[in-house]
Nucleic acid binder design. Structure first.
Length: 794
RNA sequence: GCCGCGGUGGUGGAAUGGUAUACACGAAGGACUUAAAAUCCUUUGCCUUCGGGCUUGCGGGUUCGAGUCCCGCCCGCGGUACCA
């Protein structure tokens, strides 16, 4: 027997798979079942992959290989989410064009992917930064523009001072730039948006049918933030103006003792009296200097200024002051609220500080204020004594209000002041009127010679020649191209549609191919994309569905999140901590099969767990045991123990892989190998079945052994084994005997024994007899095949 | 605060309401070896007067039987937050 040399085996089989085009599929309709197993495609960074990234790709590869062996057509593609800031920043530093560094990085990623034995169909490879691809990203923008779902507007936007670009709300995490961690500031700019708010209701409702982690679904629900309430209008005393407020607690209207408008509210200047003008102006100025982070710091003291104006509470007819304060957000609801200090914590704190009246309209004096729960109304005119929830509708109607739903989610800001992204297919005339570049002229390619120095504007602003656009040729007017590029998340919100037909130059995606493959059966990636990519992708899919361009309204049926792999020190892997494990090193020492199996064996797929350098040793020992088992192949007939072991393992591994319980699939195989190792000989069929069960997890060693024992073809595409329950039954079964909940003895009876026979056998046992002596049996429970339990009266 | 997830040996973890601690790492002892590595074997939750007793974050409950189900807490992780 040769030694197990992973170095020799692994690269050889990778080459044979390639040469045989083993994992390539086409889009021809088939009667066979299909499986689309997809990874969230990576951004090819200069740092390369570490072992944490491979967890995700190994999991999906096991699923793909498993489904393939089960006879399905499997689409398992890989591509590159290649537009992005790091490549551009690298270009600023080194003057290497992003296209060049990206190309280099993708080749390195591809090498690493092949080295771990992934079974991707590389004929489907896509790269979002190639004109062949981003032509259709531009087409997507144009499509939304034509549908009225892409528009440009002025407004306050999030600006990252370090990355020198605007950001979508989803990319601001805790007031900081999701990418670089800088504190985000607000700027007033004219930017491009996608109207995701039109789809808010459906994006919430359709979550119910998705097989996704509850965590992700709840994050999306919270992010969209649907809130049912009412719009109410407050007349301004001595003016024609009305202030529209949004409230979810119209039941407390009788307790509204003042109004608050946001500092950015358009009516502020009109409302402000001459006397208060200076104070209000100073306050607005002060607010505008605060960062978003400062403003969302909830436990800071409330600030605000009286405008000098009074509104009329439409329920009580009383004059109530109008204040301006930054605890009211301009971009939620109507940017104005009715303040009910008795029943809202924030209003209460504000009223306390500025000595504003507090009027109780719920509960009685025994309830401490602020009382924020609903209940029985008090001090509320004809509604006094009624249930607040029930009275809400009538109160709204009585003052001419309107029931309304608002959302927390904002439209998706898609323009970026950066170079390395898809140019927006828009041009402007001298008056600034928009002109959509026709689809026939796409792609608008990025110029090669550009000054990347950050200026706060897109580097494309300096591409003078590129910017000029003459739609009607030399004689027509010269327009100016949009110099902002599209958010990288636009590229990644439709890429899964492109995989079946990556090189189609007539359309972005193909109906027939989509019908064959969609929806994605299993999508694997990190939870950090919960309210970004996963929301945007659902949105775009729905847009295309409505236009009958795709035959499904949700792209990803099942979603799995992989857990993070921490460094051996239990910290997040990072260069600065020096705890990064490089897969190249692990593969060189232990082999790709051991790396794959160890990553799966570490613990539940979706759980965070630390890398343990000595832990992989056990998995490598397991591979050696499998290797040695080839010497035991020889017996012509498998005994009952062997048959039971292999059929049990087949059942367990099949179920575990289906449920992404890869850790227990590996331990089941370890138990099987331990059992088989103890036998003198094993049947060839048994060994072949073991190899097939192990193949998705450790594809190289199994392929080599498959060939060594003289099996035909590739183990990687051999038919997945089936099991027969008949082999799982045992002739004798051991029963623990419990007395008052404690196990006192074990008895062995025939597996066909009746309950009475089990009980008779238990009571024949001397230990049990001694426990039962002189005792009154209250109850006996026999669970067939499991346990017998006595409850005594004592 | 709100939402989601979790708490089991020295470590990673296993367990359709049915013998808690599978599988693996580590550790200890032994075999082989001149020696070491590798390999193989044994032991390995805690306490014990060696009869047994205790043990899945804490306290209750349901049940013949609870890591698992119910109620009330504590702790950790992740997300989110002046969202009216």
């Amino acid at each position: 027997m040769k030694n197990y040399d992973h170095r020799e085996i692994e690269s050889a089989w990778q080459k044979r798979w390639d040469d045989a085009h083993l994992f390539e599929v086409d889009n021809t309709p088939s009667t066979r079942e299909k499986a689309y197993i997809l990874d969230m495609f990576p951004y090819p960074s200069g740092a390369g992959l570490h072992v944490g990234h491979l967890l995700n790709y190994t999991g999906s590869d096991i699923l793909a290989r498993f489904e393939r062996m089960r006879g399905k057509d499997v689409l398992h593609p890989m591509g590159w989410d290649a537009f992005g800031l790091p490549a551009e920043n690298y270009a600023v530093k080194t003057n290497v064009h992003p296209a060049i560094s990206t190309e280099k990085n993708t080749l390195e990623y591809k090498r690493q992917f092949k080295q771990v034995g992934t079974s991707y169909d590389w004929t489907k490879e896509i790269n979002t930064s190639s004109p062949e691809y981003y032509r259709w990203t531009q087409w997507c923008f144009a499509f939304l523009y034509k549908k009225g779902l892409a528009y440009r507007k002025d407004g306050l936007v999030n600006w990252c001072p370090k990355d020198q670009t605007v950001l979508a709300n989803e990319q601001v995490v805790g007031g900081k730039c999701d990418r670089c961690g800088s504190e985000v500031v607000q700027r007033s700019l004219r930017q491009w948006y996608f109207k995701i708010t039109d789809y808010a209701d459906r994006l919430i409702a359709d979550l119910d049918d998705l097989d996704w982690p509850e965590k992700i679904k709840s994050m999306q629900r919270n992010w969209i933030g649907r809130s049912e309430g009412a719009a109410l209008w407050f007349a301004i005393d001595g003016s024609e103006e009305k202030v529209e407020v949004f409230t979810t607690r119209a039941d407390t209207l009788f307790g509204a003792t003042y109004l608050v408008v946001a500092p950015e509210h358009p009516l502020v200047t009109i409302l402000t009296s001459d006397i208060q003008e200076a104070a209000v102006a100073a306050y607005i100025e002060e607010t505008s200097r605060k960062t978003e982070l400062e403003r969302t710091f909830t436990d800071r003291e409330k600030t605000g200024v009286f405008t000098g104006a009074y509104a009329i509470n439409p329920a009580t007819g009383e004059k109530i002051p109008v204040w301006v304060a930054d605890y009211v957000l301009s971009n939620y609801g109507t940017g104005a609220i009715m303040a009910v200090p008795a029943h809202d914590e924030r209003d209460y704190a504000f009223a306390q500080k500025f000595n504003l009246p507090i009027v109780r309209v719920l509960g009685d004096d025994s309830d401490e204020l602020p009382l924020t729960s609903k209940g029985v109304l008090s001090n509320s005119g004809v509604y006094t004594g009624k249930d607040s929830e029930a009275a809400m509708k009538d109160i709204v109607a009585s003052v001419g209000g309107e029931r309304r739903v608002t959302y927390r989610i904002r439209d998706w800001l898609v323009s970026r002041q950066r170079f390395w992204g898809a140019p927006i297919p828009i041009a402007y005339d001298e008056e600034g009127a928009e002109y959509l570049v026709p689809d026939s002229e796409l792609p608008i390619t990025l110029p090669m010679n550009v000054d990347f120095s950050p200026t706060g504007k897109s580097p494309l602003v300096s591409a003078l020649e590129w910017k000029q656009y003459r739609p009607d040729g030399e004689n027509g007017p010269t327009l100016t191209r949009e110099t902002d590029t599209l958010d990288g998340f636009v590229c990644s919100s439709w890429y899964f549609l492109r995989f079946p037909t990556p090189h189609d130059d007539t359309q972005p995606f193909d109906q027939t191919a989509l019908k064959k493959w969609f929806p994605v059966d299993t999508y694997i990636g990190g939870a950090e994309h919960a309210v970004m990519h996963l929301l945007y992708a659902r949105f775009l899919t729905k847009v295309f569905f409505d236009a009958k361009l795709v035959p499904f309204h949700e792209p990803f049926k099942t979603l799995k999140n992989q857990g993070m792999i921490l460094g051996p020190d239990h910290n997040k892997m990072s260069k600065s901590k020096g705890n990064v494990i490089n897969p190249d090193d692990v593969i060189a020492e232990f082999g790709a099969d051991s790396l794959r199996a160890y990553e799966m064996f570490m613990g539940p797929f979706d759980q965070e767990k630390p890398w343990n350098t000595t832990g992989i040793v056990g998995v490598r020992r397991f591979m050696e045991k499998v290797w040695k088992l080839q010497e035991k192949v020889g017996s012509t007939k498998a005994g009952p123990d062997e048959l039971r072991a292999i059929h049990f393992a087949t059942k367990k591994v099949t179920e575990d892989i289906q449920g992404c319980r890869f850790n227990t699939a590996v331990s089941t195989l370890m138990e099987l190998v331990n059992t088989l190792s103890q036998q003198e000989t094993i049947q060839k069929d048994t060994f072949a079945t073991l190899l097939k069960l192990l193949s998705p997890i450790a594809p190289h060693i199994t392929e080599e052994l498959w060939s060594l024992i003289g099996q035909d073809g590739f183990c990687s595409v051999a038919a997945w084994p089936t099991y027969d329950e008949a082999y799982l039954v045992v002739s004798e079964v051991s029963y623990p005997v419990q007395i008052n909940g404690k196990v006192r003895a074990n008895i062995t009876v025939s597996s066909t024994a009746t309950e009475d026979e089990v009980r008779a056998a238990a009571e024949a046992n001397p230990t049990i007899q001694s426990y039962l002596k002189d005792q009154e049996i209250r109850k006996v429970v026999v669970i067939p095949g499991k346990i017998i339990s006595y409850a005594l009266n004592s």
